[in-house]
Write a protein that binds this DNA or RNA. Structure first.
Lengths: 345, 345
DNA sequence: AACCGTTGCGCAATCGATGAAGCAACGTTA
DNA sequence: TAACGTTGCTTCATCGATTGCGCAACGGTT
């Protein structure tokens, strides 16, 4: 490491008594194809190491019209599901010798669009879009820039998409919960199973609601509108919605299917204020998984989405240059509630 | 959006009957300083919008020797503490009109170095380094490239650093736990408070261990080596360590201070297999916070690190161009255990 | 009319790496 | 020995945006 100033291939060329293009190909691995002698390459590499040289990837990217960056946008970082996606995405990206750029956009369509445009300006090689609010708009931006892209979680009509089998997952979860509940009576709202959280206008939630409906009506013959409370993906609204439900019913219902881990946090916050005995009478499940869910004061069935399978599948499309619109479903996993270990008094 | 081919300022210049340099400054906001008429700017902007033009940031970056990218490296994504840092970092970065690049490096020094080099090759404007394994090496890389950098969580001797006040946090947590425990007896290892998890060779853990020691010896006059089990930051080792402790003591100890949320997951996994009554006799706390920790089957005191304060402080150094080595401590917050609501039988 | 300041913009070099094309030197073959 | 293929490089244009310098046109002064 000689100087602290930026070294370029020209500096190396001067020291090596070679031309910049020789240095370039010696360092980027194309030297065999360009018939550079191995001695020369070694000499150049030695000088480069000595000078503490590192390529300027902006210059290379400008020349080659690709950057070696791969983008991923997602709603938020602070969420087990999304951060598992980030982890897998990072691993897969670096395995390919590329650099991951993960940006969270708070489910804000404007923010999403601005971020995608900005990533395009950096000439990212491809883009994975998780939980988009407006998939079509984003897909248009990418297509216009000629950038390969895949949607995850929230699919897009006009691009390859990968998602959990939300319908099936919610159905299985609802069935599991009902098996732990006393029979539901049509005239007793407190005896019903409720669906809480999510945004019914979005794909994932609507699929889960459909799965919920299928399971419930298979057992009870019908589903009431009040059983479905899609209060959004955030924490506080979920808490408030549960409070309202509790007030309205005069107690907790017999069953709760919470849609998304963040809503579950709100539910937890509310339940924390209730007497334990009351919670015991409510069967609870959550679509999404958190390891801590397994040791709560009450048993919780959880649905675990296969983050790595989702990303691997998405990368499969990108690697293959496949841009045909098609939705791939990945079956999620039911993580059954741990039986409570406390000796029943 | 005319063509799907990349548009450049030259294309716009041709259409506008202007020179590329005029187009450039019209679009990048320097047009006033360059005395371009406002009409001209408007005309150019209209054409740019029509063509669906977007700047090539690689070209700009090459010319200006900065990229508009700000890097952050951290050990893992799938961890509440780190993902909160990611979230705040993203917000702060975009607020400055820059683009966040967050890469996780699995606490692997080689991976860390390679990642930093790669980020430097992209000409990032500055870098935040979270939980580094080898801070000095990374700092050297950055200094050599003339890149402003700040360490978070794991400080560095030769660069500005920000960390939680781990000593104080662990001390407070230990005190809180001991207040819930029966008095410790020197000859009864099962009556002691144990420290479990983390890597004693790293700054954060060593500080926490010191805080733990201070609190415990203030109460009992002494701390045994066996009370401190620094089995690493991963899940499985923590689980195994607890199992070993349990086997050795013939039961759970009176108190456990778990170092890090990931270790806590391992602990949870082991506790799940024990009868509830046994867990009730063990007072538990965790250094790090997870909202789900609040409603576990047993009360847990938790220390919450102030992710946003950490990032804001770090950005303060970067914005100010401050590269003087100095460690800033941020006091973490004790989140006391929720009293158990279950009616004691 | 000569001079000057201002306005509005164009010219051309530059950032660092890449790669197509070309060239000199040497050995081979006919 | 003339023609030709190889080897091992060098030359130079290029990617797209930026920016220091310069210049023409115009209005106003003296």
């Amino acid at each position: 490491m000689k100087s602290s100033q930026k070294q370029t291939i020209y500096d190396i060329a001067r020291q090596a008594g070679a031309s910049p293009s020789t240095v370039s190909s010696a360092l980027n691995g194309t030297w065999k194809a360009r018939r550079i002698r191995e001695d020369t390459v070694k000499r150049i590499k030695a000088i480069a190491a000595d000078l503490g040289y590192s390529v300027n990837l902006q210059a290379r990217g400008l020349r080659k019209a690709r950057s070696g960056l791969v983008g991923m946008i997602l709603p938020e970082h602070d969420n087990r599901f999304f951060s598992q996606l980030s982890q897998t995405f990072t691993t897969e990206t670096r395995r390919r010798g590329l650099c991951p750029v993960i940006v969270s956009t708070r489910r804000d369509p404007g923010e999403e669009a601005k971020t995608v445009e900005s990533l395009i300006s950096y000439a990212i090689d491809s883009l994975i879009i998780v939980g988009a609010s407006d998939p079509e708009a984003l897909s248009r931006l990418c297509r216009n820039a000629g950038i390969g892209h895949v949607f995850v979680d929230q699919p897009c009509q006009s691009a390859p998409s990968v998602a959990s089998d939300n319908h099936r997952g919610a159905e299985v979860l609802a069935e599991t919960l009902m098996a732990r509940m006393p029979p539901q009576r049509p005239d007793a709202p407190r005896s019903w199973l409720y669906f809480l959280g999510g945004d019914a206008t979005l794909y994932a939630s609507s699929q889960r609601i459909a799965g919920f409906r299928a399971a419930v009506s298979a057992q009870t013959g019908t589903v009431r509108a009040e059983q479905i409370i899609a209060c959004g993906y955030e924490r506080e609204p979920a808490r408030q919605a549960l409070k309202d439900l509790h007030d309205r019913l005069g107690g907790l219902p017999a069953g709760l299917l919470i849609n998304s881990i963040t809503s579950f946090e709100g539910v937890i916050a509310y339940l924390g204020a209730l007497p334990e005995t009351e919670i015991r009478d409510c069967v609870i499940g959550c679509y999404d998984y958190d390891p801590f869910g397994m040791l709560l004061r009450f048993p919780v069935d959880m649905i675990r989405q296969r983050a790595n399978a989702l990303i691997e599948e998405a990368y499969g499309h990108l690697d293959g240059g496949d841009d045909a619109p098609a939705l791939t479903l990945i079956e999620p996993i039911l993580v059954p509630a741990q039986e409570d270990q406390s000796a029943p008094a």
